[in-house]
Simulated assay, not measured.
Amino acid sequence: MKLLDIGDVAKRTGIAPSTLRYYDDEGLIDSLARHGLRRQFDPNVILQLTLISMGKTAGFSLKEIKQMLTPDGAPKIDKLEIVAKASQLDKQIAQLSALRDTLNHVATCPAPSHMECKSFRRLVSVASKRLATHKTR
């Protein structure tokens, strides 16, 4: 098996070598050897880094992500935790969709003032209710 140099991993993933070293030090990934001072990784590290990136994008902390990986980097996922995160993302998507709709309306609204526009006031009212509902949960 040919190991990947840290520079190769950085090029393939777009993740800075300093971040790769940090992930290695924190136990999220494991370097298998060194070539001089340069860390060497199993090619499967690319998949592990993809899973880590997906977890970060979904809003998981590195500590949470580490708990979702076995020592060899395979996923070890608590399905209830994933369902809860998916639900949280659904709420965030709804909020962002409402914000997008409001911004698009503002950009195209023919009213002389947005405060005079019934559609704008309705969109802001809906967004306000969603925020209030989200904060009370």
Rank of each mutant, 00 (worst) to 15 (best):
5 D>N: 14
118 K>T: 05
81 E>D: 12
84 A>Q: 14
106 V>I: 15
108 T>E: 14
71 P>K: 08
109 C>G: 03
105 H>K: 03
45 V>K: 00
113 S>Y: 05
16 A>Q: 13
33 A>N: 13
48 Q>F: 02
75 P>G: 01
50 T>M: 01
19 T>M: 14
134 H>I: 04
133 T>F: 06
124 V>W: 07
96 L>S: 09
14 G>A: 02
36 G>D: 09
127 A>W: 11
11 K>L: 04
25 D>V: 03
61 S>L: 07
58 A>K: 04
137 R>T: 02
87 S>A: 07
128 S>C: 07
100 R>T: 10
90 D>V: 01
4 L>M: 12
48 Q>K: 10
61 S>C: 01
77 I>E: 10
136 T>H: 03
9 V>W: 04
45 V>S: 05
108 T>D: 12
42 D>N: 13
63 K>F: 02
19 T>Y: 03
104 N>V: 00
78 D>W: 02
27 G>Y: 06
120 F>Y: 15
123 L>W: 05
96 L>H: 10
65 I>E: 12
5 D>I: 03
108 T>R: 11
22 Y>I: 08
28 L>I: 07
21 R>N: 01
59 G>Y: 06
81 E>T: 01
134 H>C: 03
73 G>E: 12
117 C>I: 00
16 A>R: 14
10 A>D: 02
7 G>Y: 08
127 A>E: 13
135 K>I: 07
61 S>F: 06
126 V>T: 11
114 H>L: 15
129 K>R: 14
37 L>C: 06
115 M>Y: 10
80 L>T: 11
74 A>Y: 11
59 G>A: 08
67 Q>I: 00
67 Q>D: 15
96 L>W: 10
33 A>S: 13
101 D>N: 14
4 L>Q: 09
90 D>R: 03
69 L>M: 07
45 V>E: 02
105 H>F: 02
66 K>H: 11
6 I>Q: 09
85 K>N: 11
112 P>I: 04
35 H>W: 04
77 I>G: 03
68 M>T: 00
71 P>G: 06
115 M>G: 15
33 A>C: 05
124 V>C: 14
52 I>L: 11
75 P>I: 05
38 R>F: 05
38 R>I: 03
58 A>F: 09
31 S>V: 07
72 D>Q: 15
134 H>E: 12
88 Q>F: 10
40 Q>M: 15
92 Q>K: 12
76 K>M: 07
